[in-house]
Amino acid sequence: MHEISLPIASNGKRIWSFVIDDMVINFFLMIIFSSQMTALMSGVTEVNEESIALVNQFIMDNIAIVLAIKVLYHTLLIWQSGMTLGKYIMKIKAVDMLNGERLSFTQAFWRASVRLISEMFFYVGFLFAFFSPLHQTLHDKLSGCVVIDV
């Protein structure tokens, strides 16, 4: 079997990439939901049980859209180029661990899905990167990829 050597990205670059990507996704979400959020907030005059119930209902009504946008953002960009906007700015990319090539659509989708689950459970899957010699998160390990410097 042919062995390859890849320049593994640092945890610092990965953290900044994560922050940038979260800001980009949140910007998209603010645009998408701006009219709904404006209407919701105009009806809230004080914090009470009724206003909390309205906010909770808004979240429940839109959680599937938010989750779908996150998975689509990470799946499509990683599948196409190995880079999200955050990874592009930080000059890192996700590649297949065995051959250093672009991830398949299935790998990218699996990576994005496990990443989302890790986020929902207090980012535990992200902690793997601090204890892995290849700085792999849980979603990297399960999708068979590694994040490298470009």
Rank of each mutant, 00 (worst) to 15 (best):
A68H: 06
I89L: 07
S10A: 00
E50Y: 07
K87G: 03
Y73G: 10
A112G: 05
M37N: 03
N26Q: 10
A53K: 14
M60R: 10
F33R: 11
G43L: 13
I20G: 12
L98E: 14
N62Q: 13
L103Y: 04
I69F: 10
L85H: 05
L54D: 13
I117S: 11
V24D: 06
T38K: 09
K87M: 04
E49P: 00
I15E: 12
M83G: 05
V114P: 10
A94D: 04
K87E: 00
N62I: 09
T106D: 14
A108D: 09
K91Q: 15
W110E: 03
E50H: 03
L54Q: 15
I117D: 10
N48Y: 02
G100F: 06
Q36D: 15
I8V: 12
T75V: 00
A68F: 13
I117Y: 04
M97Y: 10
G43I: 04
R115F: 10
V95D: 00
G86N: 05
L67S: 10
T84E: 06
Q80M: 12
L29G: 01
S104C: 07
M97T: 03
K91E: 13
E49W: 03
G82F: 09
T45I: 08
F28L: 13
T45N: 07
I31E: 08
T84I: 09
Q57G: 08
I78D: 08
V19L: 15
G86T: 07
F105N: 09
A64D: 07
I20M: 12
A68S: 14
T106R: 14
G100R: 01
S17C: 11
N48L: 06
I32C: 08
S34W: 14
R111N: 02
Q36W: 11
L76C: 07
I59S: 03
M83I: 00
M83W: 03
D96G: 08
T75L: 01
L67E: 07
K13G: 05
K87I: 04
G43E: 14
M97Q: 09
L40K: 14
S104T: 15
M60L: 13
N99K: 03
K91V: 01
R115W: 07
M90T: 08
W110T: 15
N26R: 07
D22G: 15
V44D: 06
V114E: 08
K87R: 06
R14V: 00
F27W: 04
Q36N: 12
I15V: 15
S17D: 04
